[in-house]
């Protein structure tokens, strides 16, 4: 049986798809057969971030409607062995997803894969609820600002009340906090919430802190998961997060303001 992990947030633009792509890639790099499903029907983005938009023929909705088989639809990643992408439909909307349809697809994928990453759309409506309904674990992506934290709190409530595990009274979904776009300088100035502020409000274990980095935008535009950018802090932070997700203990990095050297300051870098 595969482990189903939903990447969710409530708020939009916090880095769900970026994180899904990075974490999915990271897990596959460890040799686990992984598929990332784009649940954002109508606003398909995962294929862009993964750099496979030109290879999309069929999509998730086609599979649910039995217009295509899974093997026809799954896109094999060219860079990472053991990694597949199930793209969303761009021409349909969230109503095309049905609980039975999603369940059938997840059950079929469970037989072949070790990990299923569900990239949730923003919001708390049907699309987001479909993405989290069958999850075993959740990665809640949050930016260090109040509205994002509030929305994450809301989605945590939904995870504990409207998921299949909650409805069946099973062991609750395991929750992980992923803090993205973290800016230690702005935290020091009091313009952003600190890691401990967010942990205090959400009260769930911290999976990782991804520093704000130009590498993220650059990687997205190039269609490369940022975890493959091993020179960048964001890439390294995602690698740490995947290690922690797999149960390893890793110290948190990139949380402090980096002291700039004399030459760096001279160059304004």
């Amino acid at each position: 049986m595969a482990k189903i992990i939903v990447v969710t947030s409530g708020k939009g633009g916090v880095g769900k798809t970026t994180s899904s792509a990075a974490i999915g890639t990271g897990i596959a790099m460890k040799g686990h057969k992984t598929v990332i499903i784009d649940f954002d029907v109508g606003l398909r983005n995962l294929d862009l971030i993964m750099g496979c938009e030109r290879r999309v023929v069929y999509d998730f909705v086609n599979v649910i409607n039995k217009e295509a088989t899974l093997s026809q639809t799954l896109i094999k990643d060219k860079r990472t062995k053991d990694l597949f992408i199930l793209p969303a439909s761009q021409t349909r909307d969230k109503d095309a997803l049905t609980i039975e349809g999603v369940q059938e697809v997840l059950e079929a994928l469970s037989k072949e894969f070790d990990y299923i990453i569900c990239d949730s759309p923003a919001g708390i409506e049907k699309g987001a609820q479909m993405a989290l309904y069958f999850a075993d674990a959740a990665i809640v992506v949050t930016n260090p600002e109040v509205s994002s934290v509030r929305d994450s709190d809301r989605i945590l409530g939904i995870l504990q009340s409207k998921s299949k595990r909650a409805e069946e009274g099973k062991e609750p979904i395991e929750e992980h906090l992923l803090l993205t776009r973290y800016h230690p300088e702005r935290v020091a100035l009091g313009e952003m919430l600190s890691v401990s502020d967010v942990e205090d409000i959400l009260a769930i274990p911290l999976l990782g802190v991804i520093p704000e980095s130009e590498a993220v935008l650059k990687a997205s535009n190039q269609g490369t998961p940022v975890i493959l950018e091993t020179e960048s802090e964001a890439g390294l932070a995602y690698t740490d997060a995947v290690d922690r997700l797999m149960g390893e203990e890793k110290p948190f990095r990139f949380l402090e303001v980096q002291k700039k050297g004399f030459i760096k300051r001279l160059l304004g870098g």
Partner: peptide, 26 residues
């Protein structure tokens, strides 16, 4: 025993004891 999250509502006919937090918006 679990945090009461934003958007959640809990009602008790007698006393209510929350062992963790009650989030903003709950």
């Amino acid at each position: 025993t679990k945090p009461i999250r934003s958007g959640q509502q809990v009602y008790a006919e007698g006393d209510l004891i929350v062992l963790t937090q009650v989030s903003a918006g709950a």
